[in-house]
Design a protein around this nucleic acid. Sequence first.
RNA 1: CGGGGUGUAGCGCAGCCUGGUUAGCGCGCUUGACUGGGGGUCAAGAGGUCGCUAGUUCGAAUCUAGUCACCCCGACCA
Length: 501
Amino acid sequence: MGRRFSLFCELGGILPVRGDEASMAAKRPFTPRSEDFPRWYQEVVQAADLAENAPVRGCMVIKPHGYALWENIQSPLDRLFKETGHQNAYFPLLIPQSFLDKEADHVEGFAPEVAVVTHAGGKKLEEPLVVRPTSETVIGHMFAKWIQSHRDLPLLINQWANVLRWEMRPRLFLRTTEFLWQEGHTAHANAEEAEEETLRMLDIYAQVAEEYLAIPVRRGVKSRIETFPGAERTYCIEGLMQDGKALQMGTSHNLGQNFADAFDIRFQDADGERKLCHTTSWGVSTRLVGAVVMAHGDDRGLILPPRIAPIQVAIVPIFRKDDDKAAVLGKAVELAAALKDAGILVRLDDREQIKPGAKFFEWEKKGVPLRLELGPRDLEAGQAVAVRRDTGDKAPIAFEGLADTIRRELDDIQKGLFERATRFRDEHTHQASSFDEFVQLLEGPGGFVEALCDGTDETERAIKEKTKATIRIVLEDGDDLGACILTGATATRRALFARAY
RNA sequence: CGGGGUGUAGCGCAGCCUGGUUAGCGCGCUUGACUGGGGGUCAAGAGGUCGCUAGUUCGAAUCUAGUCACCCCGACCA
């Protein structure tokens, strides 16, 4: 970190001093994370060309680079869903309002953020239609028709879709009124299988978060207050962002028989009896794009883990004279082809009229993991110069075996990012044995704080009221674990607290 | 919904208080030349119903009234 910071200062020093404030602002690097993290986030998302705000407040336009990133997150997820027996399907955007009403907790939980269509075809509708905030209800309705026998179980369905939840405080990717996600919905013959499924999918989420997004996660169960409306139990994965706030990166719900009961999802078992199904649902969303930005980015912009980067290597050719140009570009094309053949996502930046320095900045702010510089001097030396986005390290790479070297380098970056994020997470995880200590830890280093509490909703709410910290994960429930940090009463719960997005 | 603020070029803003006729600046964009190992320089250009409506006035971006939109601050969520 320190090394890159000094490089950054050096660059700052050679920026032109002339020009008014506006032109300086245009060239100034990002607002440092330490100064104003939300602003930094916004600037990075914009500069990396990931997304921008749409005409309707709370909605976003996901731009090609951002969408490519999302596709690269979708791809391992979709593969793993299919490998575990799930099939994709698609359910409609509009849901009869009465469906929502069938599960009491569910309506109550979603009512404030649901958008309702009351008019269509130039007339007022007989029954209002809600724009799906999630699809348990329609899917439950369909499951009831599809499931007759225990031979129809388990039913394992996933859909990739958009959903709408009216938001008052939108932020690109992290909290938008409309977002893209996947929602898995399954039905099982008994509670054990449903619980197994719920945990299996949680594991897949954790795996993708850690192996692809390079973000270490804590996984576990939510408190009653944080449980999905209508679920028996909600499991989640929680990541820690660089500002010390937690981000819920995925949830997996064991819905018990609540929705089966509400929608009459029954099957005839081998013993001839008609029984209620046990259902699950689980989802991750475009919020994961925001997680990647906040977990890895630095003061020079986005940093993408190679395994999800839409462009893994950017080649920047450098030349002065025309004959240099022909030779350098020729070699650059050759190298790009070799990398492509090796399955590496490479982009040759052969734009003219743009100086190499400008290209360096552009690919840097877009988070490209590795840059290859290729100039006349390199041609003579039989090498290219590689610069790592994560560490700023610069090293020559021989043309001989280039693709293999780069492959190793990308793997190393992937590993390095995960290790760096893990170190950060571990250094920002603490135990608090008193309320004072709890507050100090939140105010000081931030991050996760493990603490004991009495397990009541009131205490949980009171802690949130006083500290803005919530229970991210319940770590342990027991009869007598010690004393509650807030009330001093017998603690029946050890929990992972944090301020969260 | 309660309080505060802003609408002028793609973006960011100045001009408004103290009306005056070609409405300006920076970034970006276009064209050309020189440049090219960390955000280039110069030159020439394109780009505007000043949010909308009505009024005051010889004259409105500027004053008045109304209206619309958006932003910021207090109760949720992948």
